[in-house]
Design a protein around this nucleic acid. Structure first.
Lengths: 356, 356
DNA sequence: CTATTATGCGTGTACGATAACGCATTCTAC
DNA sequence: GTAGAATGCGTTATCGTACACGCATAATAG
């Protein structure tokens, strides 16, 4: 591997000059710069990351600004886990990541939290801009690099990257799996699919449901779709609300689609019911530690996930790459859409719960 | 983070002595060693990987011993890709990985190839022990660390790790998906599922098929399973062999399960047939670059994969961790079992075809 | 009691990139 | 025409670890 010393020798100058040219720092002549850049390409130079890491001039610190962990049915807990893991990994390079939580339903809270993060003097920020306007307001005069996870603000061209998921497509996929599970030809005698629109109303929920509906409408016109909005994020209240929709006295749904991880609330409800209710196909989102049981016993038939932990972890790693290593990662990363079911659940555990 | 300098100061000695104690090298007194080790624990010392990597004392070299790329329907090409990628990643640390191929049906070839790999003076070997006895014979007197991918030899306790897949479970999962795709209640009027037992006979093929049969036998006794052995690994010959089993004049299978990546040969065959044949549910294995089309147009309905590229990449990275960084990774890693279908294919491309 | 070996430990340098510092030379201004 | 600024570039110390070298002192032999 070529080093800057090799380049300096080849160009007949000193390593200091090469360094200045590489980093656009200090003073150098145009001619020398051109020559150095040409030689760098010829020698296929790439900096030695160890040497670079060794000379730790600064202790970079990052901030992660995301909603409260319990919101969106515990989804943000998963994101927080990813941040914590990244934080540990980075700690060996003397880098720190601080987490800031805000109320995803309060623009004020978002603005406020984001401002304190900026004021903390960190060198880079990872943000979940679930309230785009609030975030854009504050970021207007920010001068440090930032990166979005979960939700994108495409016209925010100062962001260094977006890491997210294809929610619409996950809805489409859910539709496909749902239809596959309905073995018998569907008749039009009142049978229906229940779509549960979970508490909170965000972009992902909407587009997941839109994807699901789109698939169903294209591939199964005979089946009714009944969509209900649930307004509580508390498990017990969820149960009583859902009880109003799944009644012994009325026809049961022939399939249930829950657009986020509150599918586990539904599962704990279904589990307590009599045999009559069992076997209804259920599709939902996200692997929640400690709740694998519902997938194992097939109360939930399919879980889709685009690895929220990994999204967060990747985000922080990207900040590190950009700030510390001076790299230029992809500006948009869409996570793979994983299908998890009883039969492959155990092969995912380690990856998702331990190392990513 | 504490450095050896901190330790030396705390112990009132020089860094040279600390170094010798850490590495059990040279001479030092018992008393000093005890003191140093105590202080190391107190200060929670862990070596700076950058500093360690920077001082490239040796150019470690690794060997990867796997079957010929074209064998097992091109499966080993994927593994080779993973090795090449790992090799590139490692090259920035001045480490090299050399690939050795053998004929997976020849014990002699395996023994011979493995021996040359050992003789090459490499510092660690990654092996796909598809012929366990041959591998064990040669490894008996090997004194360098080795690691298995793809196939395990559990009683080989000298291996530092095994990276593999749960093939039985992937068969079970295939069974589930297959039954889900057969929408109509299955009658017993001659309908059957075609199981294609691809060329080559290895542990994974057998256990995938066993898993598939097991699921079908438990969950769908009414359906016949017709298993056919294909003996050629050439696409055109495959087509003519399969033509003997899927005939216009006879009843068509209501589903086809191909136990490895030769599912793409089947797909190219099915694609050329008349409309009558289309729509048969097909399940197979592995994402082959350039053949995504068959999943997109749903000639193949589901692809299962346990990321052969990633298995190989991980294997080499582990060798690096063990040999160069002195770490102790997991001794057994089972890769996640991914389900890929038209609707999530595009989210996987980047991960599988670029960065892993 | 000296000659030799063994033992414990300190010094110095290398690894590659970084970045502060400062020396020359050239350019500009009055 | 010379002071002062601007420009181009070389030198050097630093990060933490690895490891060769070699200096002392202690132990042992003759």
């Amino acid at each position: 591997m070529a080093t800057i010393k090799d380049i300096a020798e080849a160009a007949g100058i000193s390593i200091g000059t090469v360094d200045r040219i590489i980093h656009n720092r200090g003073r150098y002549s145009r001619a020398t710069a051109d020559k150095v850049r040409r030689i760098m390409k010829e020698l296929n130079y790439s900096p030695n990351i160890h040497a670079r890491g060794l000379k730790k001039t600064r202790n970079y610190s990052f901030a992660a600004v995301i909603p409260e962990e319990y919101q969106d049915s515990g989804y943000w807990k998963l994101v927080a886990d990813g941040i914590n893991r990244a934080s540990e990994e980075l700690s060996s390079f003397c880098k720190k990541a601080e987490m800031y939580h805000f109320d995803r339903y309060s623009s004020d809270s978002c603005v406020h939290t984001l401002k304190s993060a900026l004021d903390s003097g960190c060198d880079g920020i990872l943000i979940a801009p679930v309230i785009p306007e609030a975030v854009q307001d504050v970021l207007g005069d920010a001068d440090i690099p930032f990166l979005f996870i979960d939700t994108d603000i495409p016209d925010e061209n100062k962001r260094i990257a977006y890491i997210g998921q294809d929610s619409y497509q996950s809805g489409v996929l859910s539709g496909k799996l749902m239809l596959m599970m309905l073995k018998k030809e569907v008749t039009n005698n009142g049978e229906y699919i229940l779509i549960i629109d979970p508490p909170g109303s965000n972009y992902h929920l909407k587009s997941r449901i839109a994807g699901f509906r789109s698939y169903m409408e294209k591939n199964c016109t005979s089946l009714m779709l009944k969509q209900v909005k649930i307004d509580t994020d508390d498990e017990r209240l969820f149960h009583s609300e859902i009880a109003g929709h799944i009644k012994e006295t009325e026809q049961l749904p022939c399939g249930i689609y829950v657009a986020n991880s509150s599918v586990y609330y539904l599962a704990s409800y279904l589990e307590k019911l009599t045999e009559k209710y069992t076997g209804i196909p259920v599709i939902g989102y996200d692997l929640i530690p400690g709740k694998e049981r519902f997938v194992e016993n097939e109360t939930i038939n399919f879980i889709l996930t685009q690895q929220p932990e990994e999204q967060a972890r990747l985000g922080l790693m990207m900040l590190y790459d950009v700030l510390v290593l001076n790299r230029h990662p992809e500006s948009e990363v869409i996570m793979p859409l994983h299908i998890i079911t009883k039969e492959n659940l155990h092969t995912f555990r380690k990856e998702i719960f331990q190392t990513g």
